[in-house]
Each structure stands twice: as structure tokens, then as C-alpha cells.
Design a protein around this nucleic acid. Sequence first.
DNA 1: GTCTATAAAGGGATAGAC
DNA 2: GTCTATCCCTTTATAGAC
Lengths: 182, 182
Amino acid sequence: MGWTTEQKNTSREKIISSAAELFTKQGFDNVAINDVMKHAGLTRGAFYNHFNSKSELYAEAILTAAKLAKRHTLEQSGFKLADIIETYLSDKHRQGEFSCPLAFLTTDIHQRDDNVRSTYTRVLKGFIDNIHELNGDEKALSEKDAMKKAVLMIGGLAIARAVNEDDFAERLLNACREGVNA
Amino acid sequence: MGWTTEQKNTSREKIISSAAELFTKQGFDNVAINDVMKHAGLTRGAFYNHFNSKSELYAEAILTAAKLAKRHTLEQSGFKLADIIETYLSDKHRQGEFSCPLAFLTTDIHQRDDNVRSTYTRVLKGFIDNIHELNGDEKALSEKDAMKKAVLMIGGLAIARAVNEDDFAERLLNACREGVNA
DNA sequence: GTCTATAAAGGGATAGAC
DNA sequence: GTCTATCCCTTTATAGAC
């Protein structure tokens, strides 16, 4: 039989991008391997030819979801920090039009294995680094200040998504927008 | 047979306090009804005599867990806002020596039903109100400022718990402590 | 009200054919 | 590499005895 590595890679990519979307929006436990494979146009049995466990896929999905969210955010806002904050702490983000795994999966991560938690930690560090870079060299940001901004963005979005009152959530996002820009 | 309402209430309280502890630390999906009942010294079958569903218990557990966390925090710190922040954003809290459901369950809530989300929303509003009260009348806090403090506390703790590097988590908590006090 | 037993469904992981 | 079929375990919820 002729299965090229290219075909295998294509399947793998499809699985990961499906997982990125489903896991980020629904969390680890609410998504079955079957869901991911169906979404990727494959069946269950093929899964273990690409990954050793659901958890391993989850870690990959977090990386890809973070890249997708970053791309989406920059495309919407350009490279000015204030605009990026506006996009990140927007109602559209809260509604899931796009989805940053740092904010959508925050408390899910603590329940997972070390591989997943290390991945999350790495992505979070990248997020904080980006804040430094986007801030420009003008008014040298301390690590503390960058962390505070990151927490207001990620934490603010996570909390606003938990709340089931739109106007209250909007006020929360608004307060955070102001706080990050301060 | 003589089952008094008092005995029923005692059982109910045991179930709820067990649920408060287990759910808050492990999330909704990682705790089975059986776990809660065992922890309460009962068996599965008795559960549905007290609650209609796992989700209904979860909502009750969030209320009780919030009260317990508040009590613990105030006992540790007294009523000065700066001390309370110190306790809330402490390594002990991150390690689960006590557990605020707002921070431990943040992204879990979005996956649940409206009853649970309403409960979370209510507890969060109470948290923000407490910030106002504890701040004293001296320098009238705006709603925005109280929300920013709440997000730095709840979000900061939630994120610090996801991270699996102690020193990085400690720097995060530290940045938030400074941010809330500012 | 609590117990044991069980129904009924879901999901992670594996086996073997193609 | 992907498919169908299946093992096996967990879990929510219910039934009926005490």
C-alpha cells in the first residue's frame, strides 16, 4: 500500500486543527476523541496512529490554538498594543469568534499532566514576551507590569466568559481594557 | 422508620461540604457523585434523595466553597484589604490549602448550565462588593477599579495555578499583589 | 432516608482486516 | 494509514428492599 508521509502529515494537521478548535472551546473532558476525528473527517481507529493519548493531542492543540488566536488578533488589530488589547478583550472573543487557549482553558490545565502544563506555561511566557515587544522600547516595561497586563487580559476574558450576564461581562471587559492601557 | 428532618439536613450538609471541597479542587468532570458520597460517609443511591442532578449539587457547592474561602481568608488576615490580598494571592492558596471557587473553577463554569453560571455570577458580584466594603470610604473606589482588583486577584490566582513552574508562578502572584494594591 | 443492584450510555484504548 | 468492531472501565441515574 502507498501511504506517503505527506498524506500522514496532512491527516495529522487536520486532527490537530480540529482538536485546537474543539478543545479550546469545550475543554478537555467535554470533547471525545471521536468528536475530533469526525471533525477531521476520519474515524476513531486511526487516532492512535498519530498520537499516544488524548492528553498528548491536547498539548499539541494548545500550541496550535495559541498560534491561530495570535494570528487572528494581529490581523484584526495590526501591531499597536492598544488595538490588540481592544481585540483581545472584545465581546467577539468572549463569544468565541476566536479563542485564546490561555483564557479559555485556564483552570482546565491544572487538572492535566505535566506535559500539558508545561505547554501552557511556555505559551503564557510567549504571551508575556509579546507584550514586551509590542510595547516598544519607549517606556521600558518591567516584568511585573507585563505580567499585570497579561493577567488583566487573560484573566479578565476568562472571568467574563464564566459570567452569564452580558452587560456585567461587558463592564468587566471594559474595566480590564482600561486597566491594561494604564 | 424514624428519619427526622434533622437527620436529613445533616446528610445534606455533609454532602454539600464534601462537594465544595472536591469540586473546587478537581473541577466538575473529575469528581464523580460516588466520590462525593463516599467522602460524606454515604453511598451513591442516597444522593438523589437530596439533589436532582450532579449539576444542582455543583451550584450549591460553589456557594458553600465561596463562604468557606471567605471565612478562611478573613481568619488569616483580618479585615485590612492589603492583608487580605496577601492571603488571597499566596502560595498556600495556589497550593490548595484553601480554595476560592471563583479562581479554581473559572473556565469550568462556561461549560455548565445556567443555574451554575448564575451562581458563579452572583458570587463574583459579592466578591466585588466586598472589595468596595473593605476598601473603606476613604478613597471612594469606582466600579472599574474594584473590577480590576477582582480580576487581578481571581485571574492571577487561576493563571498561577495552571503554571507548573513554582518560581514563575510566584512572580505572577507577586506582580498581581502589587497591582491590586496600586 | 439509606442501602445494594442494575440499567443505560459514553468514551479511551486496542485488534485485525484492507 | 484508515477502517470496523470490540474490550473494558467509568459514571449518571433509577429500582426496590430494608
